[in-house]
């Protein structure tokens, strides 16, 4: 069955794609940290971050529209959590509404806070998307291992990545079977059906895990995985790191001076 590829565009070739995954992971982490530390309504600094992202996207040759579309995933959280902020922060009111018997007013300070959070969240997610659309999952995994993620977790992670596709197919088949048989009925029955599906899926996964382990053991598995292709820390990584650190340091300095 068809499902969208997880790390789309990560197999392209560009300056950003060729970097060591460690360089990219740390750069993204520092970038998000710098964004989070930036104080409110410091638009020059936020524009600088945005320009940085734009440069990276251009260098990476990943379609801009794709990145924009992926970044919309934060919207539900924004709607649930932050939309109320302007109405609850104290401050100079900019607009007042009468809703039934309540008098609700949006404050200028609250609105500023709202927009700042929105901008920060958006910048952070853009940088994450650039990371995943320029790095294959296996490279990313190797980078995390070199950055001292416990080996058990790296192993769990790589098995998980291998079996996501298989189990997703399994779920899609089960969903199709349910939808073609289970029309109408109460909500409770729907949820119960999903429960039975989850239970079936668990048993199938568990038995698959047992079979996989037996198969691997019979082929000489000793708890290590070995791969051939690796990316190394090279001159390009050094230059990239220096550039990112300089830009972020400038931004933080500007932030500190204001």
């Amino acid at each position: 069955m068809k499902h969208s590829f997880l790390d789309q565009y990560s197999d392209r070739d560009s300056l950003i794609h060729r970097l060591d995954p460690r360089t990219k992971l740390i750069a993204v982490f520092l970038f998000i940290l710098a964004v989070s530390l930036t104080s409110q309504v410091l638009w020059p600094v936020f524009s600088l971050y945005f320009v940085l992202i734009a440069v990276l996207v251009t260098l990476s040759t990943v379609p801009v529209f794709y990145i924009f579309k992926r970044s919309l995933v934060i919207i539900p959280f924004v709607l649930l959590i932050t939309i109320f902020i302007p109405f609850f922060k104290e401050g100079e009111p900019i607009a007042t509404f009468h809703i039934w018997t309540w008098q609700v007013s949006a404050s200028y300070f609250g609105l500023q806070l709202f927009i700042t959070i929105l901008v920060k969240a958006w910048l952070s997610i853009l940088s994450l998307i650039v990371l995943t659309s320029t790095t294959t999952i296996s490279d990313l995994l190797h980078g995390m291992e070199q950055l001292r993620l416990p080996r058990v977790m790296v192993m769990i992670f790589s098995f998980m990545y291998r079996y996501i596709f298989v189990l997703t197919d399994e779920v899609m088949r089960m969903r199709q079977a349910r939808d073609s048989r289970n029309v109408g009925g109460s909500r409770l029955r729907h949820v119960k059906t999903v429960g039975a599906m989850a239970g079936t899926l668990f048993i199938r996964s568990y038995e698959r895990g047992e079979r996989v382990y037996a198969a691997m053991l019979s082929r000489g598995y000793d708890g290590h995985t070995r791969t051939l292709r690796r990316r190394d820390f090279r001159l390009a990584d050094l230059i990239f790191s220096i550039c990112i650190v300089l830009v972020l340091a400038a931004a933080c300095l500007f932030n500190y001076l204001h």
């Binding site: 192993m155 769990i156 098995f159 996501i164 189990l167 779920v171 996989v212």
Partner: peptide
């Protein structure tokens, strides 16, 4: 048991699609 846990992590991942 690591392969088992990996497959079960994929299970949680897939089950979240239900």
């Amino acid at each position: 048991q690591v392969p088992l846990m990996g497959v079960l992590a994929a299970f949680i991942f897939a089950a979240q699609m239900l």
